[in-house]
Simulated scan of single mutants.
Amino acid sequence: MLAILFFVFIGIVAIQLFYYVFVFGKFSYLKLQQSTPKKIPISVIVCAKNEAENVIKFIPILAQQDYPDYEIVLIDDASSDTTLDIFEEFEKQYPNIRLVKVENNEAFWGNKKFALTLGIKAAKKEYLLFTDADCYPVSKDWIREMSSNFTAEKTIVLGYGAYEKMAGSFLNKLIRFETLLTAVQYFSWAKMGRPYMGVGRNLAYKKEEFFNVNGFIDHMKIRSGDDDLFINQAAKGKNTTICFSPDSFTYSMPKTTFKEWFIQKRRHVATAHFYKSFDRVQLGAFYVSQLLFIILPIVLLAFQYQWIVVLSLIGFRYLFTWITLGFAAGKLKEKDVMYWFPILEIVVLFVQLNIFITNLFAKPVHWK
């Protein structure tokens, strides 16, 4: 039995090296190339529900973007706080702001996709750039950087939505490491010609891509997934590119309690269940290989079975993993989390296992 586990462990290490070197390396070792700035008309779309505290801070930042031709489409999704009042004041203050008011609809109550659909239809520009109400761009060149990646063929641009750093917080490092790993995955698979997701905190596409797949209609009943499920359906190798220049990042405040973050991640994991078969398989294979890489060596070392080889394989895997993620972390300005890498990886792994088990017995809560 130990011999079988040993050879299974060797296979697991090989799978891990395939992911980290040959797949994730597509992004980690990719050189940043300067894109040619363009003057494509852009509609920046922000959907908010009870986000008064955030929109009053972040919408003015969007309004100060250094870009020649853009509008801001603000969607109030039947907020019960002062979000709509704030939006109406912004509409008076900034001539390029367009306001979309969404009232509760019995068929689509509480469905962000319905509100976004109305906003997309109201947008006057052909190219759409999305961010969330609790996000802000890191620079005045955010629109310029994201739009510069559009070409005649590339009509979907996947960006990076980061979280702010909080000194002395292990949870903050955990959240940012998980965000880094997720970004490395979707950026890398996009470079492999198999894009499978994006994040609504920083995402752009041409309006025709939305209508080519009939918008969110195929997954309208699934409350989450206005970003990743749409990309999973609409994105192809030929029409999708990535943007990871530092001035293209958006930032948002991370959750400050483990419970809040756990609930947020439950929604994300539940949505992944509706991805295409290939994407579910590759994500599942990566997760299972990570889990077995932790469990199998414990058993083998407990019985001191081929312990020198086992320890060598562990070191070999961690070396390549650390290097690959380290390069990616440098690109995405997340180098500090790599100092905690082995610990963060293990914690994230077992949090994901806990989420998977929890979701089997209870459905996560979605849009506010």
Rank of each mutant, 00 (worst) to 15 (best):
I298Y: 00
K368T: 00
A107G: 01
L332W: 06
K206N: 10
R144G: 06
K265L: 11
E334Q: 14
F278N: 10
E164G: 15
L74H: 06
I4L: 06
E209K: 15
D226C: 02
I308D: 07
G119T: 10
K113W: 10
A152Q: 13
I86P: 00
L62F: 13
F244V: 09
L158C: 11
N202K: 07
K31C: 12
A329E: 07
Y305C: 07
I217V: 14
F7G: 00
T179C: 08
F9I: 03
V347L: 10
V73L: 09
L313V: 11
D228F: 14
I143N: 05
D69N: 09
D77Y: 05
S169A: 08
T83H: 00
N359K: 12
W322A: 06
V337Q: 02
L332I: 05
V23M: 07
S139F: 06
E178K: 15
P254D: 02
K140F: 07
F293G: 06
F170E: 11
I308F: 07
T324I: 01
I143V: 14
V288Q: 01
T257E: 10
T241M: 08
S43I: 07
A235I: 01
E178F: 14
S43W: 06
T241Y: 09
N54T: 05
Y186M: 03
A152I: 01
M253F: 05
W367D: 13
T358C: 10
A183G: 04
Y186Q: 02
W109A: 08
K265E: 13
I42D: 04
V46W: 04
A52G: 04
L292F: 09
I242Y: 11
S43L: 08
P254I: 08
Y160E: 15
E208H: 12
T82C: 01
S80Q: 14
L118D: 04
R223E: 08
G200I: 04
Y339G: 13
S79W: 04
A204Q: 07
R194T: 13
C47S: 15
F303H: 03
N96D: 12
A133M: 06
T182V: 12
G326H: 05
T83D: 00
L62P: 04
Q290P: 01
P95M: 02
A270P: 06
K335N: 14
G159M: 03
Y305T: 12
K124V: 02
F87L: 08
E106P: 04
V8R: 02
F274E: 12
Y67Q: 09
V337K: 01
V100C: 07
E334L: 15
R176S: 15
G330Y: 08
F316I: 15
T257A: 09
K265T: 11
D279W: 13
L283S: 15
L292T: 06
F303N: 01
P41N: 13
M1W: 00
I263K: 11
F9G: 00
E178R: 14
K113Q: 14
W367Q: 12
V44S: 01
N354G: 08
F7Y: 00
V281Q: 01
Q264Y: 13
V199R: 15
F293E: 03
T250S: 13
I298D: 00
H268V: 13
I298C: 01
W142D: 05
W340K: 03
T240G: 10
A362E: 14
A3W: 12
E178I: 11
N214P: 05
L180P: 02
T117H: 15
K121P: 11
Y305K: 10
K39Q: 07
A122D: 08
D132H: 11
V102F: 00
R266V: 05
M253Q: 11
L62G: 03
I40Y: 09
